[in-house]
Simulated assay, not measured.
Amino acid sequence: MKNVLLVSSALLALTVSAQAADLPYRSAPAPYAAAPLFTWTGAYVGLNGGALWANRSTPILWDAEGVPFPGPISGSNTTGVSVGGTAGYNFQLGPNVVAGVEGDLSWANINRKSRLLGVDDDNGDLTVTTGEFANKLEYFGTLRGRVGFLAMPSLLVYATGGLAYADVKHTASGSSTDIDGTEVSFGSKSSKKWGYAVGAGVEYALTNNWSVKGEYLYVGLSDTKYPMHDLADGEAMALVKEHNDFSTVRLGLNYRFGGF
């Protein structure tokens, strides 16, 4: 009797196990993974292009004795364009603040021109003086800090400021005619000028990696001084001083590495 009970119990256990094996299997749900949060932190590179302009700025001119030349010097507002590249790095400091550093180098074609026409009557001796002055900016660059506020997670409004430099070329030609004849003079100077750049802008993140921006910069560069010499004998005839400041508005497209 005992053996019959043992056999019956074993058969019942095998039957229950077989039925359990036939039941549908449910796996445990996969753990929930939150999407990574967007951040402005990281390095980026980009392209930019825009317009430049210089307000009316006329040269200051002295003769060899330091006396200002007579007669008005005309000047005109000047415009040009630029295109260049950008590189930088951002740090997102909390949910609403972004700070970073940015450098850029741009080709430019702004060219200022001025003219002088002066008539001097010194004790009946009439002297007519003419001159033409050109100030050409061929490229410029900046190295600036940026700090901004996130109006939205994808919209950065920022202020910027730092160093600026540019390659500037100056030329001047002139003539002075009196009863004794005409003296022709010429002067030129090419130099790299240093100064500052300040401005503001907005940048909008299109995706985790791509963003577009628009910004305004005022670039203040040091003045240029150079002499004009008589072409006949090389004698110093005049000293010219010119300003090199300008403004620019430009658009940019940036690619940010990483994206999260």
Rank of each mutant, 00 (worst) to 15 (best):
V119G: 06
I73Q: 08
L155Q: 04
M152A: 11
N77H: 12
G162Y: 06
T182E: 03
W62T: 15
K169Y: 07
M152S: 11
L163W: 12
D121Q: 14
K136R: 15
A166P: 03
D63F: 07
A99C: 10
S57A: 15
V67H: 10
L137R: 01
R144L: 04
G161I: 06
G71V: 12
G181E: 08
L137A: 07
D167N: 13
N90P: 00
G100F: 04
S154E: 11
R144C: 06
S106E: 06
G124V: 09
P68H: 13
L126K: 08
G71P: 11
F149M: 10
A99T: 10
N96H: 15
V168M: 02
D167M: 10
G49K: 11
L163R: 06
S176R: 05
L61F: 10
N109G: 08
P70Q: 14
M152H: 15
T160S: 13
D122S: 14
D125P: 00
V97H: 01
G49W: 13
G80S: 07
V119L: 14
L155S: 00
L61D: 04
D63P: 12
D63I: 03
F140R: 01
I179R: 14
L156H: 09
V81H: 06
F149V: 14
I60E: 14
R146Q: 05
F91V: 09
V128H: 03
T142Y: 03
A134K: 13
T127W: 04
T78I: 07
G50K: 03
E183Q: 12
G141H: 07
T129H: 02
K169N: 12
L52Q: 10
V157E: 05
Y158T: 04
A87C: 02
I110V: 13
P59W: 05
V168C: 03
G94A: 08
A134S: 14
G148K: 01
D121N: 15
E183N: 12
P95T: 11
A151F: 05
L61I: 13
V98A: 02
P153C: 00
V81T: 13
E183L: 12
V157W: 11
S176N: 09
V168H: 00
L156P: 03
G85F: 04
P95G: 09
N109V: 05
F149Y: 15
K113L: 08
G161F: 08
I60A: 13
G75I: 12
G88I: 02
T79G: 08
G103A: 14
I73G: 07
G66Y: 07
T58E: 15
W107S: 00
G103Y: 01
G181S: 05
A64C: 02
T127S: 15
L156D: 02
I73F: 08
G103T: 11
G88E: 03
N135K: 03
E138H: 08
V128K: 05
S175Q: 11
R115D: 15
A172L: 09
N90G: 01
G75C: 14
E132C: 07
Y165C: 10
G148L: 00
